[in-house]
Amino acid sequence: SLEELLKLARHALRHGEEIHVLDRVITDEHEIKRLIEELERLI
Rank of each mutant, 00 (worst) to 15 (best):
L2Y: 11
E3Q: 07
I36V: 07
A12S: 03
R24T: 07
E3G: 05
L35S: 00
A12L: 04
L6E: 01
I19L: 15
L35I: 10
H15T: 15
R34F: 09
D28F: 06
E40Y: 04
H15L: 08
H20V: 13
L13G: 03
H30P: 07
S1C: 08
V25T: 10
R41A: 10
H15Y: 15
L35D: 00
I36Y: 01
L2Q: 04
A9Y: 11
L22A: 14
R24I: 09
A9C: 05
L13S: 07
S1Y: 14
I32T: 02
E37F: 13
R34A: 15
A12Y: 01
R10S: 07
E38I: 15
K33P: 01
I43N: 02
I43Q: 03
V21Q: 05
V25M: 08
R14T: 15
A9E: 00
I26P: 02
I26G: 02
E31Y: 05
I32D: 00
E31D: 11
E37Q: 13
E3D: 09
D28Y: 05
I19T: 02
E37V: 14
D28C: 05
L42W: 06
D23V: 02
E17S: 12
R10N: 13
E3F: 05
H11F: 02
E37M: 14
L39Q: 00
I43H: 03
L5E: 02
K7V: 09
I36F: 02
H20R: 14
I32S: 01
E40M: 06
L8Q: 10
R34E: 14
T27R: 13
D23T: 03
E17W: 07
R41M: 10
H15I: 07
R10Q: 12
L13Q: 08
R41Q: 10
D23N: 08
S1A: 11
H30R: 13
R34I: 13
G16C: 04
I32N: 00
D23R: 02
A12V: 03
V21F: 14
E37G: 10
L6K: 01
H15P: 01
L2F: 08
E29K: 15
R41L: 09
K33D: 04
S1T: 12
I32E: 00
E29F: 13
